[in-house]
Design a protein around this nucleic acid. Sequence first.
DNA 1: GTGTTGCAGGTGTGATCACAAAAATGGCTT
DNA 2: AAGCCATTTTTGTGATCACACCTGCAACAC
Lengths: 216, 216
Amino acid sequence: MNLNPRPADAAPAAHDRIYRTLRTRIMQGDLSPGQPMTLRGIGRDYGVSMTPAREAVRRLVAEGALTLSSSGRISTPELSNERIEELAALRALIEVELASRALPRAHMALIERLQTINTAVAEAVAHRDAVSYIRTNLEFHRTLYLRAQAPAMLAMAETVWLQLGPTMRALYGKLRKTEPPQFHRLIIAALRAGDEPGLRLAVRSDVTQGLRMLAS
Amino acid sequence: MNLNPRPADAAPAAHDRIYRTLRTRIMQGDLSPGQPMTLRGIGRDYGVSMTPAREAVRRLVAEGALTLSSSGRISTPELSNERIEELAALRALIEVELASRALPRAHMALIERLQTINTAVAEAVAHRDAVSYIRTNLEFHRTLYLRAQAPAMLAMAETVWLQLGPTMRALYGKLRKTEPPQFHRLIIAALRAGDEPGLRLAVRSDVTQGLRMLAS
DNA sequence: GTGTTGCAGGTGTGATCACAAAAATGGCTT
DNA sequence: AAGCCATTTTTGTGATCACACCTGCAACAC
C-alpha cells in the first residue's frame, strides 16, 4: 500500500529513478555486453515490484541501451562490427555539428573547465580505469556540446553513446594504452583559436579514434 | 536446442502491436500536435487492459513520439520553432549521409521504383491530402536510404521523422501548394548521373524545404 | 460579474496474481 | 561418460485492483 504521497518537488517516480540509474550505468560502461538481466531482479535491487522495472527497461530498449531476445529476455547489446562502425559514423556526424555550433559561444571559462576535465581523463587513462575513462571522456564532450544550445541533437548523441556503452567498456578494458588523449588537446586549441575547420577535424579524429582500436 | 522459438504465424505481443500501430500513425501525421491520450482509452481501442498500452506509450515517449506532462498525462508533442529547426538540421545531417551511402548501390530498378513513388507523391500534393503526402514522401526517402545498408542510421532518421510527424501534419495541412516535389526530381537525376555532390545538395534542399514554410 | 471552494470523475502509478513459454535441473538410458 | 527426456523453476506478459493526484465543473460568496 502506498501511504507515502509524492510531491512534485520531492522524489521522482520509481520507474524514472530506475531508468536514470540504469541508463547512467550503461552509458558509463558499468555493464559488459551481453549481460542478462531480469525484471524481478531489477525490482529486487531497487526494492519495488516488477511493474516499474518493466517500464524502465522498456524505455531503455527503445533507446537501444538494452536488447530483447526473441523470447523477451533482457540483456545489454552485443554489437556487430558493422554496427559499431555505423554508430561511430553517427557520432562523427552529430558531434562535429554540435562542436561547430558550440564554437561561437565557447568563452574562456568553458575552455578552462574542459582543461580541468581533461586532466581527469588523463588520470583515468594513466590508472587504466576503463569506467572512469568513459565517464570523464563523456563529461568532456557533453560539457562542450551543452554550449551548442541544441538539446535535440545532444539527446541524439547521448543515445548513440548509450548504445556504445557496454561495447566501449569491453574495448577499453582490453586496451593497454597509457598515452593521454591527444585529440582533446587539439579540440581545446582549436576552441581557443576560434578555428572552426580545425575543431571539426579534431572532434572527428577524436570520435573515430576509438573505432580504429577495434580493427586490431 | 530450441528448434522453434517464435513461429511466423504466432501472434506478436499486444504491446508490440499497439506500439507499431501508434508509431506508424504518428509518423504519418495521423495525429495533430498536442492531442491528448489516455492509457485506458488506448487499451479500450485495442481491446486490452492498460498494461500493454502503458508499455507501448513508454516506448513511444522514449523515442520522442509522445510527451508526458509534469503530471504524467500523455499527448503528442507540440514543438517549438527552435526544436523544429534543430530536427530539420538533424534530418539534413543524417539523410545526406544516407543518400551518399546509397548512391553507389543505386541501380536502375531502384531509380524506377523511386519514380513510381514520386508520382504518388505528386498525386497526394495535387489532392491536397496531407497524410498521403507525408506517407508517400517518407516512403520515397526510406526506399532510397534502405540501399545505404545502414540500419542504425536509418533508425535514427526515423526517430526524427517520428518526432516531426504531428507537426508536419499541422504544417502541410495549412499549406495550399499544388506544385509537385521539385527536389525529388533532382534527387533522381543525381542518382542516375552518379553525381554525389549534386545528390547531397538535392537531399539537403528537399529536407530543409519544409522548414522554410514554417517561417511564413 | 468575478474569483474561490468543494466535490466527483478520470488518470497515471505500482502491487499482486494467473498463465504460458522458455531455461535449468536432475535422473535415466545408451 | 555423453546424450536425451521429463520435471521443476524462472521469466515475461497481461489483467485487475487500490491509491494519490490532477482536472473540470458547478455552486457559492463577495
